[in-house]
């Protein structure tokens, strides 16, 4: 990589923009959340480094969910492009970040052996993809808009349409998994998983906007979804005396 790396610490995570571990409206969190406070570390090499991914880890169709599992035709559903930029908190582009996505099909059914929802599998849709951000932090993939999905929380709960996102960043402390929602979906404000976040500004950052300028006429619509990872701050001074190594 051409970039010159210096060991530098990450800006401390602001937990006000994240859901708490214990969020009883989302019932599974009750028994899966620690009761003790997290112990805060000052970063060492273990946190400011992380796995590096390259083009050789991927295949060319990995970011095309319309084609990457097509067997005897195209998948059924709304054809869309999802694209955007990954930046750090200082606005710097996050280059070469691995973006992995997964989702249900147009009817809200996941291709997973544990999903028993009665909506059918689409034989031409797998539901996962991955891509590396470029020099500007930009990524894009093409897919079918996922359908809403019922789940056992309260008996009448439905997930809004969503795409799961996983980002590697440059360091293990930037590792993030989140979900992208679609502008205008009335299920967003009812969802117990969305509502684990007690901050409307933070919720808004998870809602992709319809982006007609990026749509391909007579082919597919587009949504814009930007993401922010924690920033690495510059190390300007070190506690080192004159002459010390």
């Amino acid at each position: 990589m051409s970039q010159i790396w210096k060991p530098s610490e990450l800006v401390h995570r602001d937990y006000d923009s994240h859901p708490p571990a214990y969020a009883p409206g989302y019932k599974t969190s009750v028994l899966r959340s620690p009761r003790n406070a997290l112990i805060s570390l000052q970063n060492s090499l273990s946190e400011i480094t992380g796995p590096i991914f390259g083009a050789k880890d991927l295949d060319p169709l990995d970011n095309d969910l319309i084609m990457n599992y097509a067997k005897d035709g195209l998948p059924i559903g709304e054809r869309i492009i999802v694209h955007g930029y990954v930046r750090d908190g200082f606005g710097r582009p996050m280059k070469n970040t691995l973006v992995e996505v997964w989702q249900a099909n147009a009817g809200g059914r996941y291709r997973h052996k544990k999903d028993k929802y009665l909506a059918p599998i689409d034989p031409n849709f797998g539901g996962c993809g991955r891509v590396l951000t470029d020099e500007n932090g930009y990524y894009f993939f093409r897919t079918i808009k996922p359908g809403p999905y019922p789940w056992r929380n309260q008996a009448s709960d439905w997930r809004p349409s969503h795409i799961h996102f996983s980002l590697s960043g440059e360091s293990f402390a930037q590792r993030l998994i989140t979900q992208m929602y679609f502008e205008g979906d009335p299920l967003i404000k009812q969802c117990p998983i969305v509502k684990t976040i007690n901050n409307d500004d933070a919720i808004r950052t998870l809602i992709a906007e319809l982006d007609t300028h990026a749509a391909v006429p007579l082919d597919c619509l587009a949504y814009r979804f930007d993401l922010v990872l924690r920033g690495h701050r510059a190390t300007l001074f070190e506690n080192r005396t004159q002459g010390a190594v």
């Binding site: 295949d59 908190g89 291709r111 997973h112 539901g127 991955r130 933070a202």
Partner: peptide, 28 residues
């Protein structure tokens, strides 16, 4: 300073995206 994108649970079907063979299919 831009706020970090909020985390959300990986959910029960995380394997589809991060380990599709564990979800029960071959794609990559």
């Amino acid at each position: 300073y831009l706020a970090e994108t909020a985390s959300q649970t990986a959910g029960p079907y995380v394997h589809i995206g991060l380990a599709p063979q564990a979800a029960g299919f071959n794609i990559f």
